[in-house]
Design a protein around this nucleic acid. Structure first.
Lengths: 212, 212
DNA sequence: TTAATTAATGAACATTTATTCATTATAAAA
DNA sequence: TTTTATAATGAATAAATGTTCATTAATTAA
């Protein structure tokens, strides 16, 4: 971060180049991230210990603290990533494309991700875990705001789809809520059962919305 | 519990009758239960402190410990209640009634409960929280077993309904999983949003299963 | 080899939270 | 009013977990 433009002359005493150090740091940060998201998503913030995170990452506790001053900071960084993902989705849902197309596309992506690996499921559960924390840090407030925006956008999208005759009738906000609730539920099942989880066919998931 | 049939002669020294003491104990147990389930369901086992439970119940920490030797014991007692509820449901789903009727009835009950109060939602989330704990106490093993039985029974019920031409086609196990996933999701939303949560119409919830 | 610099370690320390227990409150009977 | 049995309290203690920091490891240039 700090003046990476410093001239070559001045780093003659470094045992490694700055690039090498940077690569090392990124590598351990990655290890921390993937260990932490796994644990936070599955067990929640309070139930995961820094010892577990460090063990999962294959590093020492001390090294963890060189990268994050507090367990909370690590958590919030992951929350921030997740929030960015949500923001992209909100934007996507604001596009002028056909509502059916947008919903189908997104649903398909999720089902694929759930099927393939659990990265999506982990981020989704992380957000959930976050929303149940009463602690009102800026990061959590922001996540809250964005997730409400997403529901609003989806409601509007459904309304639009209904006017175009693409979607079934019914209260748009109830439909939007049910849509995310079902995704939420599948996500939990995936994390809970993992191998045993069979990703449902997209027809099942969108039947409540789509006309036959 | 212990020899409540003891003769009236022998309790002449009691400041209150045994019935009175019993009533007091039941009253505080009730207070503990409703405080604890609320907190455990919302925040999970690790994130709820005994201090919070005691405060929520309006009693001292010491009194809590007179009723439960460990925080875990209280949790397991609640898990046991929840498990009994599941067992009743498994039995119900084994009956010879029409699959459509059974599913409709049960779904309606849940939606009503979600609408009315959060008792159901709380027990549901408690089970969920339990299933993510790696600790394998007898109570948790049992809950696991019963919840798998429930999914199996539901799968069979759907199969039966399909043969009777009552349900849409599609993999019965995928359909069963999706059913519980969507209920799960709604439950979480209810606990998360509470007042803001609008219970969906039953048609929305069962559309994926029912022929038009 | 030695010096230099930063990554990495884990035992020591701090803080939080679960649990215990000596003490007090209550209410009925003597 | 005193006695008595049990409910109820909360400060003291124990255990668990988060955080720090003095120390070591690794690597390259001199």
């Amino acid at each position: 971060m700090i003046d990476s433009g410093k001239g070559d002359k001045e780093r003659e005493k470094l045992p490694r180049t700055e690039e090498q150090f940077e690569a090392m740091r990124i590598a351990t940060r990655d290890k921390i991230h993937s260990s932490a998201i796994k644990l936070f998503a599955k067990k929640g913030f309070a139930a995961t210990s820094v010892k577990d995170i460090a063990e999962g990452a294959g590093i020492s506790i001390g090294l963890m603290y060189r990268h994050y001053k507090k367990k909370e900071d690590l958590f919030y960084e992951l929350v921030t990533y997740a929030t960015k993902g949500l923001e992209r989705l909100v934007e996507r849902f604001q596009s002028e494309e056909s509502p059916v197309e947008l919903i189908q596309q997104f649903t398909l992506e999720i089902l694929n991700d759930l099927d393939k690996d659990d990265e999506y499921a982990q981020f989704h559960m992380l957000m959930n875990q976050s929303l149940t924390m009463e602690n009102q840090s800026l990061q959590l407030q922001n996540l809250n705001k964005i997730s409400e925006e997403l529901i609003q956008q989806t409601t509007r999208l459904i309304e639009k789809g209904q006017k175009l005759g693409q979607f079934r009738e019914g209260s748009p906000s109830e439909l939007a809520l049910f849509y995310f609730a079902s995704i939420q539920g599948m996500t939990m099942f995936k994390l809970l059962k993992n191998e045993q989880f069979v990703t449902p066919n997209i027809k099942i998931v969108t039947a409540f919305l789509m006309k036959d």
